[in-house]
């Protein structure tokens, strides 16, 4: 319900934004253009904020050569959704600050947002978020990836992420020796 309400409000704000031409155009590595609100981009991405402040924003599309169109679409999608969602109380910092990365649980829409992504899209998105300095998106995606590993053995993780075991026999033996308390092979 809250989201619906937020959407409505955002619809209005977007109209206003368009009237002021308050958007940034981003260009993916394969030349596709995406538009995102300047305010959201500046708030969510430290890199974009720096570019906007530094005036290095190109009206015909700022080149982001490191980011593919699919990932950039997700990034823009995330920015728009984030602008639409009402910031929860949890995101407002409390009086005592804990420097040890006070990670807030992903909100429902954030969870859904990352849940629908394929493994590859997730990989692209986490790299894009890292490149653009989008702390919150990085947190949410990393959280999602960590959830996919929880309670799994190395073999199972390798299977999920299609990773080849690149250790040599000797190295594996070494790891096992180091972590003998935890691993047991038959």
């Amino acid at each position: 319900m809250e989201v619906d309400k937020g959407k409505g409000e955002a619809e209005e704000t977007r109209k206003v934004a368009e009237a002021d031409r308050d958007t940034v155009t981003l260009k993916s590595s394969d030349g596709k253009l995406f538009e995102v609100s300047k305010e959201a981009a500046a708030r969510l991405s430290t890199v974009l904020a720096g570019m906007i402040a530094g005036g290095s924003i190109d009206d015909n599309g700022t080149d982001l050569k490191q980011i593919g169109s699919e990932a950039l679409e997700n990034v823009v999608d995330y920015c728009n959704k984030h602008a639409n969602s009402i910031p929860s109380a949890a995101l407002i910092s409390s009086s005592i600050s804990f420097n040890t990365a006070p990670f807030k649980e992903p909100e429902e829409w954030e969870r859904k947002f990352v849940d629908r992504l394929s493994h590859d899209a997730l990989f692209d998105l986490v790299e894009a978020a890292n490149f653009l300095g989008m702390e919150r998106l990085l947190d949410v995606t990393c959280h999602k990836i960590s959830e996919m590993m929880k309670g799994k053995s190395p073999d199972q993780i390798r299977e999920v992420f299609n990773i080849k075991n690149d250790y040599t026999k000797e190295e594996l033996e070494e790891i096992r020796q180091e972590l003998a308390w935890a691993f047991y092979d038959d």
């Binding site: 990365a101 990670f103 493994h119 590859d120 990989f123 986490v126 790299e127 890292n130 990085l138 947190d139 990393c142 959280h143 990836i145 960590s146 959830e147 590993m149 929880k150 309670g151 799994k152 999920v160 992420f161 299609n162 990773i163 080849k164 690149d166 935890a182």
Partner: peptide, 25 residues
């Protein structure tokens, strides 16, 4: 899943690791 996951940049791997609270994980 494409095999790119094994090339996960270390700084991103580190962030993911911080989300794993179980020592065994």
């Amino acid at each position: 899943a494409s095999p790119r996951w094994s090339d996960l940049p270390p700084e991103l791997g580190g962030l993911i690791l911080c989300h794993l609270l179980s020592h065994v994980d």
